[in-house]
Design a protein around this nucleic acid. Structure first.
Lengths: 123, 123
DNA sequence: AGCTGTTCACGAAGTTCA
DNA sequence: TGAACTTCGTGAACAGCT
């Protein structure tokens, strides 16, 4: 039992196909990105109606205010979003990694492959 | 099937070539701009005829009243037009952006040391 | 494997100007 | 008025960390 059982896994916000849990709720990629982008700018969101817009796959782009509200209702949490500090640290490490990778590549290529091109530069 | 099928994509209002969805309807650039400009002044629009004017590319400018009516019939929604508040906010942000850009330019050009330490990647 | 952020092409808003 | 343009929100694909 429960072998080939394919769960629907619908987005808790708009009903589109969910790709997993994002910020504590089962959502699609669209609502995932929307929440990260929008939750900090929530002050500038105003629903032109009474705040009761339908939020489904087709109409989710029409009213960001109601979409964000539904995100919050679905249990999405803004404190799951990585802080700027953490991101800065992550980026610094990435730079380090890349630099190290590059130097490693140079080392290995110069020691293993004695590139012949450098031997006779100007013919 | 659906191989080289080129969709007509005609404006739902006047039949001109549509450039995409505008305010919830597939329309041309002309009807898009017309709708945004006109929909708020709809009260002052009166058809001199029976309100059954033909609206096509050649005659769409003749009767704004009937053109607007056809826009609404095509499903164009006035609440898709950004509110004055949102626009004001957007403009304020643009002013900020430009000011910041200018100050950055001044800083970089007036600074003596070309330190690349400040990493501000794509915002 | 699962969940972060990042990237980037695209669609649909507004803006400009002849 | 509307063709051309700028701007920016979207979300699929991708990369990195745990």
């Amino acid at each position: 039992m429960a072998s080939g059982e394919d769960e629907p896994r619908n987005c808790a916000v708009c009903g589109d196909r969910a790709t997993g849990y994002h910020f504590h709720a089962l959502t699609c990629e669209g609502c995932k990105g929307f929440f990260r982008r929008t939750v900090n700018k929530s002050t500038s969101l105003i629903c032109p109606f009474a705040g009761s817009c339908k939020v489904n796959k087709a109409q989710r782009r029409h009213c960001p205010a109601c979409r964000l509200q539904k995100c919050l209702d679905a249990g999405m949490k803004k404190d799951m979003i990585l802080s700027a500090e953490v991101l800065a640290l992550r980026r610094a490490r990435q730079v380090q990694r890349r630099a190290q990778q590059a130097s490693l590549q140079l080392t290995s290529s110069s020691s293993v492959h004695p590139s012949p091109a450098l031997a006779t530069p100007g013919a």
